[in-house]
Design a protein around this nucleic acid. Structure first.
Lengths: 260, 260
DNA sequence: AATTGAATGTACGCCAACGTACAACCTTTG
DNA sequence: CAAAGGTTGTACGTTGGCGTACATTCAATT
């Protein structure tokens, strides 16, 4: 069971570059989908950061000081209970954004937001983002729509976590993260997976064993490799498909806007 | 287990009045919190409806044709699986709104939205709402903030459904609905509660029995009465408190705006 | 008042997952 | 190379909830 959080590292961000980081922004779907003028405005205020594994972008219940346009890696939104148990309620990658409460004028963020797979992102301060938004209607709209996509994802995951077995949920999770990462391996320990699935580490071992025996995945310490994607889709619950349909709507939209 | 949905009644709405229903709008927190001019604009396009029990305001996956400003009753947002099992991912009453996808420009709504306790609401068509929003910045902002409140609620409920036992979840649910309904009885059958908690009807019977034996509630067929609210708060999981804090932020905000 | 149908109580075997513990294992570090 | 520490495998009894079935009770008709 999502063992009690033993001081997850709150490591220092590594600053890659600051100010007008012209090309790095082109990795994030949201920034890609807005007019160059708005994008430049954001980039002028953004710092390009390496976001290392287990970095907490926002602690549960804490004030959101920064917003992030994720450009690579895997970010997970966790609801954390008083006893340290946690469940993932959302997942995003280079198509995503962290800091929605700021956009909507809320102080704090209920969920803990963690880098599950290291990556990079563009960071903007709360104050800068608040200043930027009124002059960036397309960005604003894009972020609002993104918030809806994440809300729908949360609704589906909520039901999934209640109704489906660990091995199916694990399969769903692996597919979702592959979609967001690209490539076919997911560098994660079973401990971490347990936190996200809201289950015990031992249950993940068993579930992963089932998938491996079926030749769908192979894994070594801290690294899951997906061998048979189609098989994994069959092993996963219907929720994968449902969430994917939503996510695709979102992604296609971004691509469509890119043309304009 | 959330027994398979046997043709929930899709009963006819009962039209109470149409057009400029001047005073009925004052029951909904969102409408209360916006300037009179915007409120009047909405009311001029709204139909005041009685929303009977089990009325489906939006079917899972269906296109949202109408939006509703709820003025009384209890509305629940359910994620429904292919086999008919369901879990509640959100709950609202006279402080709420149905039709967020329309606000954000999405076609469909993933969740089924049902009247769990009969009430009333102001209905606006999709087209009318879309026309209204550009001229109503306060309303727009209010709806966007409401969407965030519901998203946070979904995140907490998601984790709760995974991590907490039926009787604690039931206690949480009763408290949440009492907050939204006022009074101290919740007119619901155990079958309905099962759908929302994502569990079997028989499990609800047992859980309700536990709460009744502890003198926290009494119930007869289709009606739960809350006898000891403080006791029920102790019996409930931490999620009740967490969600309430969020909801209060929202409600206080609405009240504050009312002064302006 | 009798009848009907819905709502509730309860019981059965069963199973997935729990909490816990410990051994085995691999990778890194000194 | 040995030690150390994180990662994984596995096992134990326990438990909450499942699926199902059937009996009971109540409320609303006729």
């Amino acid at each position: 069971m999502a063992t009690v959080n033993k001081a997850l590292p709150r490591s220092k961000d590594i600053l890659l570059s600051s100010g007008n980081s012209s090309n790095s922004g082109t990795q994030n779907s949201i920034l890609i989908g807005i007019p160059a003028k708005e994008r430049e405005a954001v980039l002028s205020k953004a710092s390009s950061l390496h976001l290392q594994k287990h970095l907490i972008l926002n602690e549960s219940g804490a004030r959101s000081e920064f917003a992030y346009f994720v450009t690579s890696g895997l970010v997970s939104f966790l609801t954390v209970m008083a006893d340290g148990k946690s469940v993932e309620v959302g997942l995003t990658g280079k198509e995503g954004f962290v800091g929605l409460p700021i956009v909507f004028g809320f102080e704090t963020n209920l969920t803990r937001i963690v880098m599950q797979v290291e990556g990079s992102g563009l960071r903007v301060t709360r104050a800068d983002l608040v200043d930027l938004l009124p002059g960036c209607p397309n960005l604003t709209k894009s972020l609002q729509r993104f918030s809806q996509v994440m809300a729908m994802q949360a609704a589906q995951i909520a039901a999934c976590n209640r109704l489906h077995e660990v091995d199916r949920r694990l399969a769903r999770w692996l597919l979702m993260s592959q979609d967001r990462l690209g490539g076919d391996d997911v560098p994660l320990t079973q401990e971490t997976l347990a936190h996200m699935l809201g289950t015990r580490r031992a249950s993940v071992t068993v579930a992963a064993g089932i998938l491996q025996k079926a030749s769908l995945i192979t894994y070594r310490r801290g690294d899951v490799k997906i061998d048979n994607r189609d098989g994994l889709e069959t092993a996963a619950c219907e929720c994968y498909e449902t969430i994917k349909r939503q996510a695709d709507t979102w992604n296609n939209e971004a691509k469509a806007r890119q043309g304009s």
